[in-house]
Structure formats: structure tokens, C-alpha cells
Design a protein around this nucleic acid. Structure first.
Length: 214
DNA sequence: TCTGCGATAATA
DNA sequence: ATTATCGCAGAC
């Protein structure tokens, strides 16, 4: 089944509904030089705008977060910790558009262009370390500030979201979000259970619990 | 495999 | 001052 662009309507919902549906989709970057880098989404977090103290949008629109307040189906890319880029998918009900709702893509299982990803991420010694974190996947796919605001449906900047028929997991692994000081109590992180490309230690990956000894 | 810590600069 | 993180060192 050939990959299809994910339709615009997919994004026009509450981020807590979009987030688990994103698991299994492909995040694709086609560079101008013809190289395709892509990975299957295995970990996401929902951010709920003005209602969510963990969101960049909590205190309203600024120059940095402007894309989040725009239409669903665009990429919000921000810079953090002095050296990392992170990528979000802007979402939102039609009635909520402009509320600053988004889903952070936290990890991918690499699919296409692995040699190109390795060239972009010399620190990653194993393929499983290429995209197992929000900053890592941006470095691997070559996503930075210049992709902030990119339209994922028209793919006008070479970045798009594809559906190759892989369904989201029937029972995703759900936990609280990572790295927050405010709003950390909400269980708005979803993962493909046990996938080795999910970020963090085993307990945060939904690793199968070891069977008790006899 | 897991935990702790320093790097590094835009943002508010 | 804070930060939606990463990579390395060191312990087990």
C-alpha cells in the first residue's frame, strides 16, 4: 500500500485525540537534493493551549509560538535548551482553531534515508539512537527553524505526514509527559508499547514486565 | 541499563 | 532565571 498524505481534516481535532492516532504514521522529509528521510511515529505528547500550563501557548501568542495559533496541519518547530530543535503538529477543533493546540513528536523508528540520518547525527552509534528523542529526530531529519510553519498537507517545504496503512496500536502505552515542571500530572503521552525507539528508560517505553521467576 | 550533570542560547 | 534535551561519565 503506497503511502498517502494524511488529510487536513485529521488534524482538526483535540490534540489528545490526534496524538494516539499519530502513532504508526510516517514523518517524511524530502530534501531538495532528492534524499528522503522518514520514520514511523512511536511516541507523542499532547499540549492543550491556554488550559495547559505545560504548553508554550499557556501564556498566549508570542513571536516564538505563533505557528501553534495558526491552522491545524502545520509544523511548529521551536528551539530549546540552547541547542535543540523540537517538532510539533498543530491541531485543534474547527471551533478551537487559534487556541495553540499541538502534538509534540517525541520519537520515530527510522524507515528511509538511514545513512543520511547517520551523517546528520554522528553522535548516534546505533540506529536505535537516531530518532529516540524529540531533539534527536529533528537533527536526524534535518528539521530546524526554517521548517516552522511548514504545511504538512501540501508538503510545500518537503515535510509531510504519510499513512502507509499501519494502524495505531489498539492499546497504546499511556503515561504523564516528560521534562515538564508544570502540568506534569496529565497523562498526555502515548507510545507504541515496548518499541525500542521510544525515548527514556525501559519503564517509560512500556517494556514488557519480566516474568516472575518460578 | 540506569542515574546524574554540564552544555548552551533564545525567550520572557 | 528558565527551559517540551542530549551525550557523557560512572555505578551496577
Amino acid at each position: 500500500m503506497p503511502p498517502a498524505v494524511v488529510a487536513r481534516g485529521f488534524y482538526a481535532r483535540d490534540p489528545r485525540a490526534v496524538a494516539p492516532d499519530l502513532l504508526g504514521k510516517l514523518l517524511v522529509h524530502d530534501s531538495p537534493d532528492g534524499v528522503r528521510r522518514s520514520g514511523r511515529i512511536v511516541e507523542v505528547e499532547a499540549y492543550c493551549g491556554s488550559a495547559d500550563p505545560g504548553s508554550h501557548a499557556y501564556r498566549g501568542e508570542t513571536a516564538r509560538n505563533r505557528t501553534m495559533f495558526g491552522p491545524p496541519g502545520h509544523l511548529y518547530v521551536y528551539f530549546t535548551y540552547g541547542m535543540h530543535w523540537c517538532a510539533n503538529v498543530v491541531t485543534g477543533d474547527p471551533g478551537e482553531s487559534g487556541e495553540g493546540l499541538a502534538v509534540l513528536v517525541r520519537a520515530l523508528a527510522p524507515v528511509d534515508g538511514i545513512p543520511s540520518m547517520q551523517a546528520a547525527r554522528p553522535a548516534a552509534r546505533r540506529v536505535r539512537d537516531l530518532c529516540n528523542g524529540p531533539g534527536k529526530l529533528c537533527q536526524a531529519l534535518g528539521l530546524d527553524r526554517s521548517f516552522d510553519g511548514a504545511d504538512l498537507v501540501t508538503a510545500n517545504q518537503g515535510v509531510w505526514l504519510a499513512d502507509d496503512g499501519t494502524p495505531p496500536p489498539a492499546t497504546p502505552f499511556q503515561t504523564t509527559r516528560i521534562g515538564l515542571s508544570a502540568g506534569a500530572e496529565h497523562p498526555w503521552r502515548w507510545c507504541v508499547p515496548g518499541d525500542p525507539h521510544v525515548s527514556g528508560p525501559a519503564r517509560l517505553r512500556g517494556a514488557p514486565t519480566p516474568v516472575p521467576g518460578p
